[in-house]
Design a protein around this nucleic acid. Structure first.
Lengths: 230, 230
DNA sequence: ATTCAACAAATAATCGATTTTTCGTGTTAG
DNA sequence: CTAACACGAAAAATCGATTATTTGTTGAAT
């Protein structure tokens, strides 16, 4: 085919740092590295076949999202959450999310309703505990779980609030990864169903209450399972 | 004096990227660059007398905090907030901050009370509009304002919630910078005083109400003053 | 006059190598 | 035996230069 005038980024080819960033984010979230593990630019650069600058940029971004710690002149590491920090994250979620859920239920349109239904259906149909080859959790269920909770809130129509949810979810999941190893998730199927029902019935009071309780129970189930004390 | 065993970071000398990052953050927040202005690594590197790598790292961090936009292969730029985005930020603040304020008032100890008093005193004594040489706002008042609002919430004792406040405040201030040029702040002295009084009286209902109204009024006063429509 | 391709300049992204700091080991003074 | 130091290896931070992409311009074809 003839080469038309260079369209910006037409080839879909993305920056190397973007790829490495995505790799690091996924690997850390997936639990490929243990909490406290050092993330050495040199090793990563060799593994990924890129230069230090690329790895460095990716690491800086990863730190910005709370997925890694940085000690100046001492390198990067996977964060090891304390029990205290895990509780703080859980508390922040149950402080904020019920309020946003109310707003979402008051504002969500029919399209939102449909997406809530779809997200719940998908979550309910995804087996929660089928760790595949070498994995210690189901990434499929984990993703469906995230989408369900996020979709519930998306009716609020406020990207800033949803960004806040995203950040807290990331932190929450990162902590859960390792807590869940010893203390697998309790069955929250009923809670999720009640959440969906209350949301679609536009019963903000019940929904907010169920969500708060859901978060409290999850936090309680996982407390005491994290790595080091804070 | 003899050189003792290298203590980590003893000289207080910090990384170059840290300095450049601080410079960029302050310059953008201060309004040294106009919304939409390109942040060119080459120019910055020359200005700051450092290499591209450190500027690049600083820029990536700045983007991570929402203080700059990035278009792959097209560089970095100071974000130009739309009116819609400004309203979303304001709504997010009045959705979350009153709830956190309640928690803070219920939990804050005497030390917190003292800090609230001090922060309010400082804010009340700082003249709001004495733009110095070439400045279009008072950085002293702006900082006192931030500290007051943050201190009010610090009683909650939850770093995650305070981080959320920090992010929203940054975004809020960045948008306010340019809105305030045409539409200077209204006098919020009375509202701040009522906030302090309600907080110290442990009247969570009143405090949350005043804060919500304070945020609503501020948002209303600044709406319609941003750069481009969204 | 308008459109599109080829070329040139500017800027972003990446790389390879150098400098700086930390970490680990062995040595010596007390 | 302990503690402070010196030295070398490892890793982080920085730099200078190269490669790739975008942007602006020119000129020919329609």
């Amino acid at each position: 085919m003839t080469q038309t005038v260079h369209p910006p980024n037409s080839s879909g080819k993305q920056m190397l740092s973007e790829q490495v960033y995505a790799y690091l984010r996924d690997a850390i979230m997936r639990g490929d590295y243990a909490p406290g593990d050092a993330l050495k630019p040199q090793g990563l650069a060799k593994e990924q076949g890129v230069s230090l600058a690329v790895v460095r940029e990716a690491l800086v971004r990863v730190v910005g999202e709370g997925l890694a710690d940085r000690l100046p002149n001492r390198g990067f590491a996977v964060p090891a959450f304390s029990d205290r920090r895990w509780q703080e994250i859980a508390e922040a979620r149950r402080t904020i999310e019920p309020v946003v859920l109310r707003m979402s239920i008051e504002r969500g349109d029919v399209d939102w309703e449909a997406r809530v239904r779809a997200a719940h259906h998908r979550l309910a149909r995804t087996p929660a505990f089928v760790p595949e080859e070498g994995e210690h959790y189901s990434s499929a269920w984990s993703e469906a779980h995230r989408v369900f909770h996020r979709t519930l809130l998306e009716g609020c129509g406020n990207p800033v609030l949803l960004e806040t949810f995203d950040r807290m979810w990331t932190a929450s999941e990162l902590a859960r990864r390792w807590a869940a190893q010893r203390n697998p998730d309790r069955d929250a199927l009923g809670e999720h169903r009640r959440l969906e029902e209350a949301a679609l019935a536009r019963d903000a009071d019940t929904a907010a209450e169920v969500l708060a309780q859901h978060l409290t129970l999850t936090a309680a189930a996982l407390t005491g399972c994290t790595q080091r004390q804070g």
